[in-house]
Every structure is written in C-alpha cells, then in structure tokens.
Amino acid sequence: MRILVTGGSGFIGSHLIDRLLARGNEILNVDIKAPIFRHQVPLWHQTDILDLAELTRAFGEFEPQAVMHLAAKADVKARTWEDYASIFRGTQNVLAAIDAVPSVQRLLNVSTQLVIGPEYRPRSLLDFKPYTLYGEAKAFAEGAVLQWQSPVHWTTVRPATIWGPHNHFLVDGIWRYLANGAYLHPNGKQPVMRAYGYVENTAEQMIGLLEAAPSLTYRQTYYAADAVMDSAIWCDAFAMALRGKPAKRIPIPALKAAGLLGDAASKVGKRLPMDSGRALRMTESYPVPYEPTLKLLGPPPVTFEDGVRASVAWLKAGAPAHAD
C-alpha cells in the first residue's frame, strides 16, 4: 500500500514508519523536520503542513492510497492558540489535500487522550472536555474530521502516555529525575492510575486500525494504550533499572506546597521543577477506555518489561537524537 505519513519524523511517527516498511508498504513522510532514523531520510519530503499548496503538491505526486496524519506541535506547555496552528489549521490542510487527490481511500487521524480530561466520561464523539490548550487544539481537529464531507473512510486514534526509545520529552523530564534520584512520587492513600503505551505497540495499533475491517472502524474513535496501571509501578520500573532503587515518595500536601512555591517563582521569572499544574497532573488518575482496541486488535506484541529494557538500553547509550 502507498501510505503518506504526516509528521513521520517525530517520536511515534519514526517507529510507525519502520513498522509500515516491515510490512512492505511504500511510504512518503511529509514533515518539516528531518527523520530521527537516518535510513528513513530517502522517504522524507520536507514540507510545512501549513503550506497548503506544497502539501497538495506532495499528495498529488505520491498519490497515496492511505494517509496517517500525525503532524502536530506536541508541546503541552505552549501558551497561545496560534502555537498550535500545525494542529487545527494543519488538519484542515490535510483534509483539503485529500479532497484534491482521488487515490486516497483511508485516513487515520492521530489525536490525543487530552481531548477528554481525567476521569471524564464523554457521552458521544462530539462530547469533548479538553485538558490543556494542546487538547483543545486536538479537539478542534477531531471536530474538523467529524464534519468533513468526504467518502474517504476515516478513523481517529487517541494515544495515551506513549513512551519508549527516542522520546526526548521524557529524557528531559521524568527519566532524568528518576536517573539522578530527584524524582518524588506522590504518596497518597489511593494509587494514581494512568494509561500507558509502549511506542512500538502504539505503532502496531495504529497500523491495525488502518487495516481493520471497514465495518469496525468507519468514522470511529479508538484509544492507543497497552494498559492502565499504577503510575508508581511505571516509575519504579525505570528507577530500579536506572539506579537500583525505587522512586522516592513525597506526601501529597508537601507536593502541593512545592507546586505553590514553583508558581510563586515563575512570577518573578524563575522556573522550578514543580508547579501547581505538574503537581495536579501527578496526583490525578487518567485512565482511558482502551479495551475496545485490545478486543479489536489483540494483545500488544511487546511486554512492559521488554519495553523498559529497550528504553533503558537507549538511555544508557546516551539517548542519541538520531540513529541509523
């Protein structure tokens, strides 16, 4: 199959393209950035998704049968709506480019769990309750796909917390703190339950949704995740692998106090590792209904333990930004 991937140079996209290539697909990666994996450079078409004319030209020249749309600014800390133009305007451009190319039969739109906040149970696909401005932009993009007047078969997938080698967001965040013993996990009466997905499993789930029977995926939304687990288990697995000790604990009142201190520091131009927003995210459970995905596609191929080992091996190798 000829598959055009937008945003294929990113963390998830790079792993996804490798899995697509392993299945014998012909791939074009449309991205403003160069690929993480050097062997994928020949598949890369450097294009800004906000440039509709160039995007349409790339679609027309490649004539894809399917599109997997991942391109997005994945920074949850951006502060203005326009910072997320690659999501809301970019998705509109992708839909317009598909409309101009009759070869496209299927679209997989990659969204995020953040279109629905923690522990909220939506009543329909139109019932959004975004969590962060990034989630708002993704909800807008999902709405654009829902309202799209096209015969093209589309499916939306909402990844949960996706981890694995080449996730530099985690390298610069929690993995660094776990490695040096500075991370403090909230110690409360109830576990903090989170939905996690190992990146290779996520790629397989996305491909599975693209290839699944149309009757099961037509205009449907699924979540990409392996399991919902106590976040302490996830953190301790990496803490033990990186420094031989479980993550340190901190009482929740002390964590919230540290968050308030971080808020005060930010007002005078200083940034501390903790603020109230981060403290809240660390103490809120965030499960997602991923069971329909497993029912449709079966269990993921990579175990949690193997995923931890692969991630830690990459971290101990220096977490290289690029790989052959």
Rank of each mutant, 00 (worst) to 15 (best):
M1R: 11
V5T: 06
S9T: 01
G10E: 03
G10F: 01
G13Q: 07
S14I: 06
I17M: 01
D18I: 03
L20T: 00
L20G: 07
L21R: 12
A22T: 10
E26P: 04
E26A: 10
E26K: 05
I27C: 06
I27E: 00
L28R: 14
N29F: 00
D31A: 03
I32C: 07
P35Q: 01
P35M: 04
I36Y: 01
F37N: 00
V41A: 09
W44R: 04
D51I: 03
E54F: 12
A58Q: 10
F59S: 04
E61F: 06
F62I: 01
P64S: 02
M68G: 00
M68F: 04
L70C: 00
A71H: 08
D75P: 01
A78R: 14
A78S: 15
A85F: 15
G90A: 09
T91G: 08
N93Y: 01
V94D: 00
A96Q: 14
P102A: 09
S103T: 06
Q105S: 14
R106D: 05
L107V: 03
L108P: 05
L108K: 07
Q113T: 12
V115E: 12
I116V: 15
G117P: 02
G117F: 06
R121N: 11
F128M: 14
P130W: 10
G135P: 13
K138M: 14
F140P: 10
E142F: 07
G143C: 12
A144N: 13
V145S: 03
V145A: 05
L146K: 10
V152C: 09
H153L: 15
H153F: 05
V157D: 05
P159N: 11
H166G: 06
H168Q: 02
F169M: 09
W175H: 04
A179N: 00
A182S: 15
Y183H: 05
H185G: 03
N187D: 15
N187H: 14
G188F: 09
Q190H: 13
V192K: 11
M193E: 10
A195S: 15
E200D: 12
E211S: 07
A213W: 04
A225P: 09
A227E: 14
V228S: 11
D230P: 10
S231A: 14
S231N: 15
A232G: 13
I233Q: 15
I233S: 15
I233M: 13
D236P: 09
D236W: 08
A237T: 09
R243C: 03
K245Y: 13
P246G: 13
I250F: 02
I252T: 08
P253E: 08
L255Q: 02
L255K: 07
L260A: 07
L260N: 01
L260V: 02
L260Q: 08
G262W: 06
A264D: 02
K267Y: 05
V268K: 02
K270S: 04
L272K: 00
L272M: 04
P273R: 04
D275F: 00
S276Y: 08
R278I: 07
A279L: 03
T283Y: 05
E284P: 04
E291L: 10
P292F: 06
L296V: 12
P300Q: 10
D306Q: 14
A310R: 10
K316N: 04
